[in-house]
């Protein structure tokens, strides 16, 4: 894809601010559900909940017009018990499906050490895991900045 094609492909997607707001809403909902329904400890937010960078290898020419953001939930202290892990994954997957995420893929699965990955059509990855602590994050795919999308054409 040349620069123009990359821009056109990305203009089909929500801009990065919309995307971040939607993903943050999702993370917040899941965090609350896990506390309410699984009794995990209150989440300890990270020092930097939002970070961003240039888009990766699929959108190398988009430069300042595009961005990836990484949204961390910090951690909920303590292990989510093995016997409840599957139910927790089901809940996370159901909630995430509402925002277009696919089925969970196992990243790690052994005693007191679990992680699943869920992806959506824009290349976002939701990681949900537990070991010493429980973690939940999303790194987004590439999205146009608000200004770039409003412009309607590549810079």
């Amino acid at each position: 894809m040349d620069h123009n094609e990359q821009y056109q492909a990305l203009s089909e997607r929500p801009d990065i601010e919309e995307a971040q707001a939607r993903y943050e809403g999702l993370l917040s909902t899941i965090r609350d559900q896990l506390v309410a329904e699984f009794g995990i400890a209150e989440w300890k937010p990270p020092a930097s909940p939002v970070r961003g960078s240039a888009c990766g290898p699929d959108f190398t020419d988009i430069d300042a017009d595009g961005e990836i953001r990484r949204l961390s939930s910090g951690s909920s202290p303590g292990n989510l018990p093995d016997e409840r892990w599957t139910a927790a994954v089901t809940l996370v997957a159901e909630t995430a499906r509402g925002l277009g995420f696919g089925d969970p893929e196992v990243v790690v699965d052994r005693q007191q050490d679990h992680e699943v990955s869920l992806k959506d059509e824009y290349g976002a990855e939701l990681l949900f895991g537990t070991a010493a602590n429980t973690t939940l994050s999303i790194s987004t795919g590439c999205h146009l900045t608000k200004a770039a999308k409003e412009r309607g054409a590549p810079a």
């Binding site: 990270p46 020092a47 970070r51 961003g52 960078s53 240039a54 888009c55 990766g56 290898p57 190398t60 430069d63 990836i68 990484r70 961390s72 910090g74 951690s75 992680e115 990681l127 895991g129 537990t130 070991a131 010493a132 602590n133 429980t134 973690t135 994050s137 790194s139």
Partner: peptide
């Protein structure tokens, strides 16, 4: 710079999430 910074940002993110999950929580 943009591409390498992205790789380094992802490496930082992966490492920090891993450290958070395994208990150290280091930055």
């Amino acid at each position: 710079m943009g591409g390498y910074d992205n790789s380094m940002a992802q490496l930082q993110f992966r490492t920090e999430e891993e450290l958070a999950r395994y208990g150290d929580g280091g930055s």
